[in-house]
Design a protein around this nucleic acid. Structure first.
Lengths: 246, 246
DNA sequence: ATAGAGTATAACGTAACGTTAGAGTCAACC
DNA sequence: GGTTGACTCTAACGTTACGTTATACTCTAT
């Protein structure tokens, strides 16, 4: 069979067959006197194999290995590729949820979830501590915990109140100019307060300080942190949104 | 800030920043006397935007449009990209299930489903007829239906029996040499029988005839047909497998 | 003054083909 | 026998988003 016949039969382009010939992936068994490629039945079978693996997104070099070396472990290759696909899919899932969140955010449909979880503001028994340790190291977390632990209950309550006050102020300023001196002052106040909490808390909240500037970046930044911490921060966002509605 | 600072801060390469400069996606606000790029805070913000959309797999040209034209409809772009991602994910899902099937097939763990559905063998009231019509056109389907409709109940039963007999023969031969004259004869018999059923039935079953040759190709071929027909064919496969175990 | 780290431009490489471009081949029709 | 149209060939540039040298400055610290 000549190129176009083959190409039409399996639904690929002539150029693709040329390419496969060029890289030695599929060399036709024969040629006419004029130099036309002639594909045998075996060539067709091999092409089926190639297209099968191609459809699974295997790179052509890998396919070449698989086809040309009988010792190649197909099962293992499939297994490996499967896990790669799973990774890819979960990345796509993440993208989709990020887009959804971005769109909801842009539409102003911020969900007001568990405000309560945030009310206590108990940094000393943070459920995401393990995650934070892995992310920023023991030292930072211990320092933050020591700081929080050294606060009396009254002090903690006072701090929570102060923070909520700042949220309210930020919310108030949100509708106005974000570049005003007032806003800058509120943000600085917030940063300073967070600074007292230790570095990992600060890191985790840094992006929230820019939230009023740009919702999309907020959505992106929040996902830089692990799932647990991201949730934690979204809760903070909820408090913020709530303050915004008062 | 100079290139490396920025690159390290946001976790990309210097080359990437050079590239973004070259294509006019992100031109630094200033340069030193020596020609070093200097990135401003605004540049950083824009970079965040860029990376956000890049993370969502937007092509850089689109990002450039989005950033540089304020009239660009972000929502619409997000919506569009979302649907693209959904497509991509469903393709990946398909790949994964195909791989799974391939591996199960290779291990011989063929699932024996609904044998009953296949027992009646009622081609005249095929639930996948609509699908077949779209795939092979009305003519082929009508011809097949006419053929099946013209058969008496006895004839249909006889045909079912004949087919199952061929399946049994193929199953028997499967363990032996697939290139034997016997196997070829059985396959020809099968094809002839299917041929009597009309073209679309034949098309749908053609690949089954090669099943014993190559499980992977079978798995691939079966997915060329629509979901419904593929299911139909898998049912046929189940009958075959069942015969195989007798 | 010199080493080391950073920066610049320029240009080739990557994966899997798509897309011309120029030229030869084949079968059929006039 | 010539011409047309469909098909084939090789060659080579284009695509995407940078990675990777290579060569040459520039800056800072010792």
């Amino acid at each position: 069979m000549k190129v176009k016949e083959v190409a039409d039969l399996v639904g690929i382009s002539v150029r693709t067959l040329h390419h496969y010939d060029a890289i030695g992936l599929l060399t036709p068994d024969g040629t006419t006197e004029a130099g036309y490629r002639l594909y045998s039945d075996e060539n067709l079978e091999m092409l089926q194999q190639i297209l099968f693996f191609r459809e699974l997104d295997f790179p052509l070099t890998k396919i070449k290995e698989m086809i040309h070396s009988p010792s190649f472990d197909r099962m293992e290759a499939l297994e490996l590729h499967r896990s790669m696909l799973l990774d890819k899919r979960s990345r796509i899932d993440k993208m989709i949820t990020t887009i959804d969140k971005t769109m909801r955010n842009a539409r102003g449909e911020i969900q007001m979830t568990t405000k309560e979880k945030f009310e206590g503001f108990d940094f000393s028994r943070n459920p995401y501590e393990q995650e934070a340790r892995e992310r920023w190291g023991d030292e930072a977390v211990d320092k933050a915990n020591a700081k929080a632990g050294s606060m009396s209950k009254d002090e903690q309550e006072a701090m929570t109140k102060t923070m909520n006050g700042i949220y309210a102020k930020l919310a108030e300023l949100r509708s106005g100019s974000p570049d005003s001196a007032e806003a800058q002052a509120a943000i600085k106040e917030w940063y300073d307060l967070l600074n007292q909490m230790g570095s990992y808390t600060l890191e985790a909240f840094k992006c929230l300080g820019q939230m009023y500037v740009d919702d999309e970046r907020f959505t992106k930044n929040i996902d830089r942190f692990g799932d647990g911490l991201a949730k934690f921060m979204r809760d903070a966002m909820a408090v913020y949104a709530d303050a915004n509605l008062k």
